[in-house]
């Protein structure tokens, strides 16, 4: 059964981009533009996780969070436009399970949603393993096999590979990969992605000079080869 996610943001346009993405990821998604409606939906619909914007008219996200925590253990991810340390601490203290600072990528949001759900629901699902042709990726344990042979990867290489492998055929720019693997602090080192890619190819490809798994799209970026 699909997990239910309630997304609350006063900006309809934000909801418009989050909803289709999470739905594509296999979640059931409903939205609310204010705290009042969010509280009603949370009670009636009983979602597994709530993505909650901090700044809401009338009832703020923090108040909604406090209200929910009175009688619910629903997973909550706070969205905030503020990166101040104090804000994060407050958010986590009043019972949010995670927070995400705007602007954020939809991939990152999905990853957080999954992580929080796993952590909170403590459901021992089968270990999540991505299978792409002869490549298998254990998302939990950071392990990669090719033809049942384990390949040793650095954490950065693993994250780049995972990002590409999650959506075979989708082209990712170096910046996107850089942020996915190393966070926003390393965006100026966009080109180091090339180095990591060449290491990955040396470890995984039959012929690194003619890559099949990780393909270069000239002038744009990289993609995971489909089959």
């Amino acid at each position: 059964m699909a997990q239910r996610i309630l997304v609350v943001d006063d900006e309809q346009k934000v909801l418009d981009v989050i909803q289709p993405f999470l739905e594509r990821e296999g979640f059931q998604v409903r939205t609310a533009v204010d705290g009042k409606r969010a509280l009603v939906l949370a009670k009636e619909w009983d979602p597994d996780l709530i993505v909650l914007d901090w700044m809401l008219p009338e009832i703020s996200g923090l108040d909604v969070c406090r209200e929910l925590r009175k009688d619910s253990k629903v997973a909550i991810i706070l969205l905030t436009a503020r990166s101040d340390e104090a804000d994060r601490v407050v958010g986590l203290e009043i019972g949010a399970d995670d927070y995400l600072v705007k602007p954020f990528g939809l991939r990152e949001l999905t990853a957080r949603v999954r992580a929080v759900l796993r952590r909170v629901q403590d459901t021992q699902e089968e270990p999540q393993v991505l299978r792409r042709g002869d490549v298998s990726i254990d998302v939990e344990r950071f392990k990669v096999w090719r033809n049942d042979q384990e390949i040793q990867l650095t954490p950065t290489e693993f994250k780049i590979l995972l990002t590409l492998a999650e959506r075979p055929g989708v082209i990712y720019s170096r910046l996107q990969l850089s942020r996915a693997a190393m966070g926003t602090d390393y965006l100026q080192y966009e080109r180091t992605v090339d180095t990591h890619i060449s290491h990955l190819r040396r470890k995984m490809e039959d012929d690194p000079a003619d890559p099949r798994i990780i393909q270069t799209v000239y002038g744009v970026g990289y993609r995971f080869g489909e089959g």
Partner: peptide, 20 residues
């Protein structure tokens, strides 16, 4: 930061939807 972040989030989300 707040005023800039929200439009940026929307832009990024919409572009990502296209990319994906």
């Amino acid at each position: 930061a707040h005023e800039l972040r929200t439009p940026l989030t929307i832009l990024e989300g919409q572009l990502e939807l296209v990319q994906q």
